[in-house]
Design a protein around this nucleic acid. Sequence first.
DNA 1: TCTGTTTGCCAACACCTGTTGGCATCCAGT
DNA 2: ACTGGATGCCAACAGGTGTTGGCAAACAGA
Lengths: 186, 186
Amino acid sequence: MTSNRPRRSDATRAAILDAARERFAADGYERATIRAIAADAAIDPSMVMRYYGSKEKLFAAAAHFDLRLPDFTQLPLEDTGTLLARHVLARWAGDETLFALLRAGVTNETAAERMRSIFADQLGPQVAKVCPDPAEAPVRAGLISSQVLGLALCRFVLRLPPVAEMTEDEAVRWLGPTLQRYLVGY
Amino acid sequence: MTSNRPRRSDATRAAILDAARERFAADGYERATIRAIAADAAIDPSMVMRYYGSKEKLFAAAAHFDLRLPDFTQLPLEDTGTLLARHVLARWAGDETLFALLRAGVTNETAAERMRSIFADQLGPQVAKVCPDPAEAPVRAGLISSQVLGLALCRFVLRLPPVAEMTEDEAVRWLGPTLQRYLVGY
DNA sequence: TCTGTTTGCCAACACCTGTTGGCATCCAGT
DNA sequence: ACTGGATGCCAACAGGTGTTGGCAAACAGA
């Protein structure tokens, strides 16, 4: 059994996870210290260790992410690229977990593996449903990942001015056709 | 005067820079330690400090990069996207400095600023020469950056299997039309 | 009310970090 | 041959890191 009845420390556990996500997202894996995370959660650093075992395991626990992709087969085929662009950008803005994964994934193998699995297991199957040849789905999903992650990198992490200052609509207008081509074009 | 006559320690200085680039590229900014860099260069850590002052200044000295873009006006306009894709991927493979900038840029502000200036000062002006309205050049250059950096991120850093295993030709075939559209299309 | 477990904090460990100062050694210019 | 600076290494500092063990208080079940 993994699910037990509620414990008295559940609030603390949740506070640690929240603080961890925030710190990992803002500072990356190595600069986010257990002491800082504990301070944010207003508890002692040793509690983090007791409840999560190690920094690495804490990250693994904090970095679960679901893209919540819609079912591509229910979408008008010619708008899929644009809708996908809009969905992903919105999803990105609403949850800092993806920031944490992006910032940490560059130097931490656990984070990189998590990132890979998100785009392989969540995006890949949806792409397979609509692309011309299902055998191409992994490559197409990879290309989509590259454009989406690249925009997030430039917009939120590196803060390239023209990309960072772009409105979300503008970004969607540019990315839409690109993703559409990666989905079903050649 | 910044250029003096050759010093006896020039070889050491160069060895430090080489080792620094390699470590920053492989490990990112915080995990690349001065001690490790010094060990690679087969000298004492204190020499790094004497010759470069601090870790931050060492990075700044090691992370100069020139994209060596061709003159876009000399290229056939309809092939510019593909040629640009090919050039950038080749440039990426031939110099680990860009890796260092990408890995470090995620957590280090100096590296991020350097990255911004590369794509603004080197790519921007070339884009301005060929895009329909020069006022759009920064945005177009930013979009190109996002796709190029995104591919590098997925291919070399996160190692998304389908992107990492793609041949360079295949990557160029996919990116070419995207960059072409970001350059001159709508 | 007694008892065992949970929750929390404190203090400390062992290690690693960037960084500094001192002391030999080598070399170039006279 | 002598001297002053350049080159290099060693040892150490001060501060920060993940992590651990012990002890007090709070709680839950009897």
